[in-house]
Design a protein around this nucleic acid. Sequence first.
DNA 1: GCGGTGGACTATACCGGTTAAGTTACCCTC
DNA 2: GAGGGTAACTTAACCGGTATAGTCCACCGC
Lengths: 370, 370
Amino acid sequence: MKRPTIADVASRAGVTKAAVSFALNGQPGVSESTRQRILAIAAELGFQPSSAARALADGKAGAFGLVIDRPPRTLGGEPFFIQLLAGMQAELSRDHVSLLFTMAEDQAAEIELYRTWWAQRRVDGVFLVDLQLRDQRIAVLHSLRMPAVAFGSPRGSGGLPVVWQDDVAGVETIVAHLADLGHQRIARVGGIPRYWHTRLRTDAFAQVSEAAGIEAISVESDYTREHGADATRDLLRAAAPPTAIVYDNDLMAVAGLSAAKQLGVDVPADLSVVAWDDSVLCELVHPPITALRRDIVAIGAEGARLLRSVAAGGPGQDLPEPAPELVVRESTGVPRQAVRALSDRPASPRRYRIETRALHMWLYLMAIKG
Amino acid sequence: MKRPTIADVASRAGVTKAAVSFALNGQPGVSESTRQRILAIAAELGFQPSSAARALADGKAGAFGLVIDRPPRTLGGEPFFIQLLAGMQAELSRDHVSLLFTMAEDQAAEIELYRTWWAQRRVDGVFLVDLQLRDQRIAVLHSLRMPAVAFGSPRGSGGLPVVWQDDVAGVETIVAHLADLGHQRIARVGGIPRYWHTRLRTDAFAQVSEAAGIEAISVESDYTREHGADATRDLLRAAAPPTAIVYDNDLMAVAGLSAAKQLGVDVPADLSVVAWDDSVLCELVHPPITALRRDIVAIGAEGARLLRSVAAGGPGQDLPEPAPELVVRESTGVPRQAVRALSDRPASPRRYRIETRALHMWLYLMAIKG
DNA sequence: GCGGTGGACTATACCGGTTAAGTTACCCTC
DNA sequence: GAGGGTAACTTAACCGGTATAGTCCACCGC
């Protein structure tokens, strides 16, 4: 049984290919009764238009592309991308657009792939992730006039439409939580410095903390658990160790938690731990880790809608991603030294959410006493 | 700057489209000098043949498909699929074949997707994962005459070519390791019973253990950490608890480890833990978990080669996947009760690898004394 | 009764490749 | 020097759709 073509449907219906095309695409040019007859025959034969023929005729590939240049071994531990993909798929499958997903060795290979895809007309546009400070990809995409949308920050997108992640809001949520608990000296193990979101979070972390009257420090890493553990050890052995550490991904948070435990540092009494991006990892360990959760599936879907619009020549209006939510678990709490220090605390209230913080403190003290 | 077509190359070279086509595809019909000239012009213009036009002309889509019907949330924690994808990509990109990767809600949706892909000529074949006991997909693929290769067991593939996972070898490796250490009563938390590999592992586990003179029990699960933890608690609270538990995935192994610790069971002194499929998870926890590692990237590449052959009408020779390797970490050891029981052990040697086991035992005893 | 209008289709060109079937020009052979 | 063979191209059909420009005919108004 061969797969039917539009010609089969046409001859079966006693009309020409054009009439069938009109009928199937809702164009005027056929009467309602003929349209119904053609539709019925098409359904009966199981006819679906050939994607290649359609692509050739209308000049659209009917596909978008996503390339990630991270090593598969690292990627495996990152639920982020699978969820992003799921969101894109869900949106794109509604109009039979498919998604080409590939991993590249490095940015040069990624760029080469864009060139190939575009020249071969395999995709109508691409999604960009992991925006970097001086990103080679953006200039290439511009010169190719290849539709693209980025996930990240408008500041790093070089004019490309963006589904933008509000890193400042994320930092504010986390810092506010820690401030509420009474932390005075906090640290952050950031990601790879050449990524824009790392830079933005580092800046936001410094500013938001200062505004809250909290001492803050950021260090860099490469997202691996080794770095997470090393950085944690360094921070905890310092003369004035922080009472809380924020990690830029879940893997490092888990590794940091282990490292702290091995040094005999109790979590959360001596150290609070927060992860950026929630995942099953955060729930698996003891204590489970407080994490900033983003609706990644929704983000993927937004990106897909945006790229569809851009590829159709429509407007490339930047979209904010949904606000992140802090899932508070057992790895964060009132720091032991803050409890001790409560008595000799200066009388003048701090300006940042001091009421809430005081309330939490009070509740905590009640809890110990009771 | 528009993307050049074969006609642009042809006119620039002063020949016809056909000559260009011959030159680019290494066909006879042009002289060597003309071929070089055409190649140079094509390179200069950055010409690449349109995938749609080529697909239309030669009837090949130039793409394969992979559908997974697991919820994205679960998938995120499974490094398996990303690595499988990476292996496929690496192989397929060599001849410019691309990969369509999608997640489906359930098997019905997956099947519907195959129908659509095939009718629209979007793919030349598909990869099948998670073979089930009575798998609806196989009959559909057969009736569509759609090329496909499966990952799993030839027994469950319904005649489809398979890259087959040697579950028996895996079980043997694990059981031998535990037997060497002196375990006499072991358990396994298996996967979802409707999957073929679960069934095969369960059978193999029973048989291999019996051959080794070891008492063994398998229980079922749904791969979630909740099941992993619950099953562990049940097993450890039994009248005669096992001294080792094997888990069908890494997630459950980690959850089981936590559950054991919470019950005050020491790993590895009171309980050895082994995970099927290695990942970063196994290295993150304390103690790090002994795991069966498979070269998943290589498996993906083998599958891609096989599907390419099958889709070209070639032979569908089943391929064994590379033998799995047991990565021994700190979660497995000589069981405390085996050490105690050493003195009143019967004199007659067990037939299964008794020499090795005795050697390990001896080394262990030396270690405690020294 | 005739030009005009519009609905319902048909005929056909076109998208950008591949490929079977010509068409030359040149060389070799007897 | 005519016949045969082959290398090197060209011509043109074809893949399966979409889109534009007809064609045909019924109906309308005056």
